[in-house]
Design a protein around this nucleic acid. Structure first.
Lengths: 154, 154
DNA sequence: TAAATTAGTTGACGACGTCAACCAATTGTG
DNA sequence: CACAATTGGTTGACGTCGTCAACTAATTTA
């Protein structure tokens, strides 16, 4: 039986998305761009840098880790000097995370590395195509995040 | 200093791509769609299923693993019954990998799962937008793969 | 023909994240 | 108000994953 065109499209798309994911993973750009940070650590550090009073458990719930796993990730960031901890004034149980200056540097460097590579990837496109592609990727990411949020509410 | 618009765009794009990657990783769709396969195992299984006489070392070089790492991945697929091994007739050192019927079933199920989720993600878009987005994602994946190939040649 | 190279494997081990138990702080209930 | 229940974070034990280095066997090279 020959798959219908529609089915082939979704398989190609799925595989393409998986390839994209793999390319940004530990074997791909993550190791090239993020120095000594795994992708989970990088995302956690980025989130922490954008939010005031970011608690440990938020690392876990945002990225899908257990409390214990969140602690491990946070402790690695602290050990590396990219994040510091302090107790929340509002709740004595809560441990708030702040990005350090060094952490901000690391983030900047990583984003600069990603930019360099993305510019290279887009180099063969005219600016209209490039912008369209960029918008699409951001749109898809937004749709994915929304889908993930809805999944979480089930 | 206020970042220029251009810099913000690449940072947003980078973060979006990382979010996409994370969404397809072990904490995201991979666990939802691929049963007992990690993303590396899934990609290896998919590659093996598309190629005749796929050797173990190809698993390593395609996905960025050492020989040893490739052996581990392959052995896990064999243990799960999704891949079988045989010695190549052309070269007694080489171990050729074949996908089993069970392996094909697993791939089909996983792709069906991805399709279901992608349909849901695209549900709010009209078909023109949907097709454009789909094309863009496949295009970006292709560009990424090409970039990765050039990197490999350096 | 022997040395060098290649394909694949294996033991040891470090990195990562889960589970379960634990402690302390806070919230909820009677 | 006192106590039970819940929440935030940590820690030891442990399983999974992939690397390194050493090894064996097959093939290629000089």
């Amino acid at each position: 039986m020959t798959p219908s065109t529609k089915e082939i499209d979704f398989q190609t798309l799925s595989r393409s998305l998986l390839d994209i994911a793999w390319s940004f993973g530990p074997k791909g750009l993550d190791s090239a761009c993020c120095k000594d940070l795994g992708i989970a650590e990088f995302l956690a550090l980025d989130d922490i840098s954008r939010t005031i009073d970011y608690p440990v458990h938020q690392v876990g719930s945002t990225l899908g880790f257990t409390k214990s796993g969140a602690t491990r990730i946070v402790n690695r960031l602290v050990t590396k000097g990219y994040v510091s901890k302090r107790t929340s004034g509002h709740d004595g149980r809560v441990c708030c995370l702040d990005v350090t200056d060094r952490g901000r540097e690391i983030l900047s460097e990583a984003y600069a590395n990603y930019e360099t590579i993305l510019r290279r990837i887009f180099a063969g496109l005219d600016s209209t195509k490039r912008d369209a592609l960029r918008e699409s990727l951001i749109q898809f990411s937004t749709l994915l995040m929304q889908e993930g949020s809805q999944e979480g509410n089930r």
